[in-house]
């Protein structure tokens, strides 16, 4: 075993301290919101760091979770996220792979088309009309289909495919595998890290998306979770609305409700990451090649 020098020990120590400090700072908004969500409205009004709730209560959660439609929205968002990840992975990898093969004609042209689409878009009205003309308004497809193949994901994936040594793919072909077979049994297993990243990216973006749902979805029972978050967070800052709120003596603290809504909408997606992490272990790809 390698013997660590004194200098390396110092490096390790400093490194760990730095990373711990960063972790402490990045944990703060989470802890703050968690504490707020568990506080009584009166405690939430108090000044201070809010690192631990003084009189923990689940009242705000209870209030948020009994809103009509929120559980349905939870289900909708979950379906959307799972469906979104599946569609993105299947279509993006299938589209990206040919673009990584040198023999595929007009690769440069296609890549230019993808890049152009990343920068320019036609805006809201033509998109809405397209969705309406396709009959997708008020359906989950309006949220799923437009992002199935996007330039960003595609380019990342293509680049990863490109980095796979040509010889591995050629040897599979010599063994008699067709393109699709080479792709599924050689290329994809080698690409687990990038597939995991794209899955995480598209999952999180589907989970957090609200604008498309706000525009394309009318029925309350098809709404997504983030719209609830947006409503709780936004209504606060509406001048006229808050004057109207003054009419109601039920000044239930909005801070705790806001925090509870954010926690409810965020916790499930946070739990996904640790599962993704196992694809980032060093040597995972080589293992699958040589093994």
């Amino acid at each position: 075993m390698h013997h660590r020098t004194w200098g390396e020990k110092v490096f390790d120590g400093v490194n760990m301290v730095l990373l711990l400090a960063l972790a402490f700072l990045t944990l703060y908004p989470f802890m703050y919101t968690l504490t707020m969500s568990l506080s009584t409205p009166v405690d939430a009004k108090m000044p201070g760091l809010h690192l631990l709730p003084m009189n923990p209560t689940l009242e705000a959660y209870n209030k948020v979770l009994t809103q009509s439609g929120i559980l349905q929205a939870f289900v909708n968002t979950t379906i959307r996220t799972v469906g979104g990840i599946t569609l993105v992975l299947v279509f993006t990898s299938l589209t990206a792979y040919p673009l990584s093969r040198k023999s595929f004609p007009h690769r440069g042209l296609f890549m230019k088309l993808f890049v152009f689409s990343m920068l320019f878009n036609g805006g809201l009205i033509p998109m809405y009309l397209l969705i309406r003309n396709l009959g997708l308004l008020n359906t989950m497809w309006a949220l799923l289909l437009p992002g199935v193949v996007t330039a960003f994901n595609l380019i990342i994936m293509r680049n990863f495919f490109q980095s796979i040594p040509e010889e591995i793919i050629d040897s599979a072909k010599i063994d008699g595998a067709g393109e699709l077979r080479t792709f599924t049994s050689v290329v994809l297993p080698l690409s687990m890290p990038v597939l995991a990243v794209i899955a995480l990216w598209s999952g999180v973006s589907h989970w957090n998306a609200w604008f498309d749902a706000m525009i394309y979805i009318q029925d309350l029972d098809k709404q997504v979770l983030q719209l609830f978050v947006r409503r709780t967070v936004i209504e606060e800052s509406d001048a006229l609305a808050s004057q109207t709120e003054l009419m109601h003596a039920t000044s239930y603290s909005k801070e705790t409700l806001k925090a509870a809504t954010v926690m409810i909408a965020t916790l499930p997606i946070l739990c996904v990451y640790p599962f993704i992490q196992r694809f980032f272990v060093k040597g995972i790809m080589l293992g699958s090649v040589k093994g």
């Binding site: 299938l94 036609g122 805006g123 009309l129």
Partner: peptide, 22 residues
Amino acid sequence: LLLMFLPGFLLFLLFQYVPMYG
């Protein structure tokens, strides 16, 4: 390869380029 490529590419054209006239 073309068969693998086309479904995703057509979806891409439909949702990225058809509204481009905007």
